[in-house]
Simulated scan of single mutants.
Amino acid sequence: MRRAFTALSVVAAAAITPVVAATSAQANQSTCVNYIGNHGYAVGPKVKAACSHPAFQGPLGDGKIPNPDCYSGLVNAGVRGTDVYRACVRA
């Protein structure tokens, strides 16, 4: 009985973990995309691709650092500097 419970717990954790991870990553991408859209830019595949690169946690836990791939992707999509930074820290 104990082994069956342990095996069931492992299987359940393995099934749930990807869903939880995907949901939080998607939420951050959506926040970045929404920020761009709310600031008057057209949201297309380039913006969505750029926002798919998540921000990094600061070295001392002191906030987020934009991912260079997000930053360059939004610049190439025509987004201006301040808006790029603010969107990418939300990714």
Rank of each mutant, 00 (worst) to 15 (best):
Met1Arg: 09
Met1Val: 10
Arg2Asn: 15
Arg2Val: 14
Arg3Val: 12
Arg3Asn: 12
Arg3Met: 09
Arg3Ile: 12
Thr6Val: 15
Thr6Arg: 13
Leu8Gln: 08
Leu8Val: 11
Leu8Cys: 11
Leu8Gly: 15
Ser9Thr: 12
Ser9Pro: 01
Ser9Ile: 11
Val11Asn: 03
Ala13Tyr: 03
Ala13Pro: 04
Ala13Leu: 15
Ala13Thr: 14
Ala14Asp: 03
Ala15Cys: 05
Ile16Pro: 00
Ile16Ala: 14
Pro18Cys: 01
Pro18Met: 04
Val19Phe: 07
Val19Trp: 04
Val19Asn: 01
Val20Cys: 01
Val20Tyr: 05
Val20Pro: 03
Val20Phe: 07
Val20Arg: 00
Thr23Leu: 07
Ser24Met: 14
Ala25Met: 11
Gln26Ala: 12
Gln26Leu: 09
Gln26Lys: 08
Ala27Ile: 08
Ala27Cys: 01
Asn28His: 13
Thr31Asn: 10
Cys32Gly: 10
Val33Asp: 07
Val33Gly: 04
Asn34Trp: 02
Asn34Leu: 13
Tyr35Val: 13
Gly37Met: 10
Asn38Ala: 13
Asn38Pro: 00
His39Asn: 15
His39Tyr: 04
His39Ala: 13
His39Glu: 14
Gly40Ser: 10
Gly40Trp: 06
Gly40Glu: 14
Gly40Phe: 06
Gly40Met: 11
Tyr41His: 09
Ala42Ser: 11
Ala42Pro: 00
Val43Thr: 10
Pro45Gly: 13
Pro45Asn: 15
Pro45Gln: 13
Lys46Met: 12
Lys46Trp: 07
Val47Ser: 02
Val47Ala: 06
Lys48Asp: 11
Lys48Ile: 12
Ala49Ile: 02
Ala49Met: 10
Ala50Tyr: 03
Ser52Leu: 02
Ser52Ile: 04
His53Pro: 02
His53Trp: 08
His53Leu: 02
Pro54Trp: 04
Pro54His: 10
Ala55Leu: 05
Ala55Tyr: 05
Phe56Gly: 12
Phe56Asp: 15
Gly58Ala: 07
Gly58Thr: 07
Gly58Gln: 05
Gly58Leu: 03
Pro59Trp: 11
Leu60Tyr: 07
Gly61Ile: 02
Gly61Ser: 02
Asp62Pro: 00
Asp62Arg: 03
Asp62Gly: 10
Gly63Glu: 03
Gly63Lys: 01
Gly63Ala: 01
Gly63Thr: 02
Lys64Val: 08
Lys64Ala: 13
Lys64Thr: 09
Ile65Trp: 01
Asn67Lys: 06
Asn67Tyr: 06
Pro68Cys: 06
Asp69Pro: 01
Cys70Leu: 03
Cys70Glu: 10
Cys70His: 06
Tyr71Trp: 12
Tyr71Ala: 13
Tyr71Asp: 15
Ser72Trp: 08
Ser72Leu: 10
Gly73Thr: 06
Gly73Asp: 12
Asn76Trp: 01
Ala77His: 03
Ala77Gln: 06
Gly78Ala: 02
Gly78Glu: 04
Val79Ile: 09
Arg80Asp: 15
Arg80Met: 12
Gly81Cys: 07
Gly81Arg: 12
Thr82Lys: 10
Asp83Ala: 12
Val84Gln: 06
Val84Lys: 05
Val84Gly: 09
Tyr85Gln: 15
Arg86Ile: 09
Ala87Phe: 02
Cys88Lys: 01
Cys88Ile: 05
Cys88Gly: 07
Val89Gly: 04
Val89Arg: 09
Arg90Asn: 13
Arg90Ala: 14
Ala91Asp: 07
Ala91Met: 10
